[in-house]
């Protein structure tokens, strides 16, 4: 299998569209015959990242690279950046708006879930410039 590259533009204004990119990646992984647990982990990481991009960062671009050994997800936005990354890693910590919370988001589980279900995660963030999150999910790890 050659390395597959998927790219998605995430609309920052529309929470109703959040999850579309994640659903598409899940569909592709299924077609490629990946195991259910790997697909689940990738879907959770993708979805949490997608939601974060929409509710915090006015959207952005997601690149997904799939090869037989790993799935790499790179989510880049030009949003406000994360003021306190240490706090953002903590379960339950959130800066989500009331609107986002009313929709069931803002549980403070976004980054913790992404960390839990990926094998590698790195965040580069700069206030006023944006945030790039890179995650790698190894197959059968």
């Amino acid at each position: 299998m050659e390395k597959i590259h998927l790219q998605y533009n995430v609309d920052g204004d529309d929470l109703t569209l959040a999850g579309e990119a994640s659903s598409d990646v899940r569909r592709v992984l299924r077609q490629l015959g990946f195991d259910a647990e790997t697909i689940r982990r990738a879907a959770i990481c993708m979805y949490e990242g997608e939601i974060n991009m929409v509710i915090h960062a006015y959207g952005g671009v997601i690149d997904v690279y799939i090869d037989p050994d790993s799935i790499e997800i790179i989510m880049a936005d030009t949003g406000p950046g994360i003021a306190d990354v240490e706090k953002a890693w903590q379960e339950g910590y959130t800066t989500a708006s009331q609107t986002a919370r009313d929709l069931g988001f803002g549980a403070g589980m976004g980054l913790p879930n992404m960390k839990r279900y990926s094998d590698f995660i790195d965040i580069e963030t700069e206030l006023g410039k944006g945030t790039t999150v890179k995650m790698i999910i190894k197959i059968n790890s």
Binding site: G19, E20, R40, A43, Y47
Partner: peptide
């Protein structure tokens, strides 16, 4: 919960 995001969560899980 009854908003559209329920569909995404149900589908992804």
């Amino acid at each position: 919960m009854s908003n559209i995001n329920v569909a995404a969560v149900a589908s992804l899980t």
